[in-house]
Simulated scan of single mutants.
Amino acid sequence: MKYLILLAAATCLSACAAAPPEGPEEYGATIGIVNHTDKYIYATEVGTSGGGHAARYSAGIANVCCVVVPVKWHAGLRMNVQWDMPEGSEHVWKEKMVEVKKYDEPGSVYLHFFDNDEIRIVVTDWIGGAPEHPIPPPVKPLVNDPPMRYDSAGKNKSSLALSAATQGSVPKR
């Protein structure tokens, strides 16, 4: 009888030691697209989840559901991204494995598309155009911007020439 009580106590204590985790290890995150290019993105996919589309130089909100993401970031976290960036009327699908930037809190998944098929993925609660978003929003170049010219020291000669050219035309106070 003494051994039976000891066995029962040991069983109860071992059950407490194997408590389940406190919360889920993964969650379903909404997907947002931020396009830093001059090309339209017709469609995207992250893993097996659709991610929507994006106009040129646009930062959208994360309104497409969902891609499964770990609650806690870990080294080596990558996602397979597919996107269709048409050339004229022809669809051009591309694919790339992309590392997810380190995040501390769960949030929405934002795909940032840059020139030369560079993609960055961030997890955040801030919408794509917010100043607090981890990557600044896209900036559409002005149509009449002169080409940038730099000297050997890396100084922008265009702005120096522009300021010298307009110095006489700016009224002094």
Rank of each mutant, 00 (worst) to 15 (best):
Y110V: 01
V34I: 14
S169I: 00
I33S: 09
M1D: 10
G51L: 06
E22A: 13
I61C: 11
A164M: 07
G168C: 00
D84N: 15
Y3M: 13
V71K: 13
Y150I: 07
E87N: 13
N80T: 15
A153F: 10
P24H: 02
P146W: 02
Q82P: 00
M97V: 05
V122T: 15
V109N: 11
S158F: 13
G60V: 05
Y110T: 04
Y57N: 07
P136D: 07
H74C: 03
A15Y: 09
I119G: 02
V98D: 10
C12K: 10
G168H: 07
A130F: 06
C66G: 04
K172C: 12
E25D: 09
A55R: 04
V139P: 01
Y110H: 12
P137V: 01
I127S: 10
K101Q: 10
R120H: 06
Y3R: 14
D115C: 04
N80Y: 04
L162Q: 14
G50A: 15
N35I: 04
V170W: 10
P171E: 07
N63F: 05
V67M: 02
F113A: 00
E132D: 11
K155D: 05
G128T: 04
V69P: 08
H36S: 00
C65W: 13
P70E: 01
L142R: 11
P20L: 13
A75W: 12
R149E: 14
Y110F: 15
Y103L: 03
C16R: 01
F113I: 01
H36L: 05
V67G: 09
L6G: 15
Y110A: 06
W126R: 07
A19W: 13
D84C: 11
L6V: 15
E99S: 11
K39Y: 10
L13R: 04
V69H: 04
Q82A: 01
E45W: 14
T48R: 15
A164L: 04
N144Q: 12
V46Q: 01
V170K: 08
A161P: 03
M79S: 06
K157E: 10
I31M: 00
P138Q: 00
F113E: 02
M1P: 12
K172V: 12
N144M: 05
G32R: 01
A54W: 11
T124A: 14
V98Q: 07
A29M: 02
V71M: 09
P134D: 05
Y57R: 01
M1W: 05
D38K: 06
Y57A: 07
T30I: 01
G107S: 08
S108C: 05
T11G: 11
I31K: 00
L7S: 10
V100H: 12
D125T: 13
P134W: 06
N80V: 09
P70N: 02
V69N: 08
N156C: 01
H36I: 00
A59T: 03
K94A: 12
L13M: 12
W83R: 02
A10L: 15
I127H: 07
P146Q: 00
L111R: 07
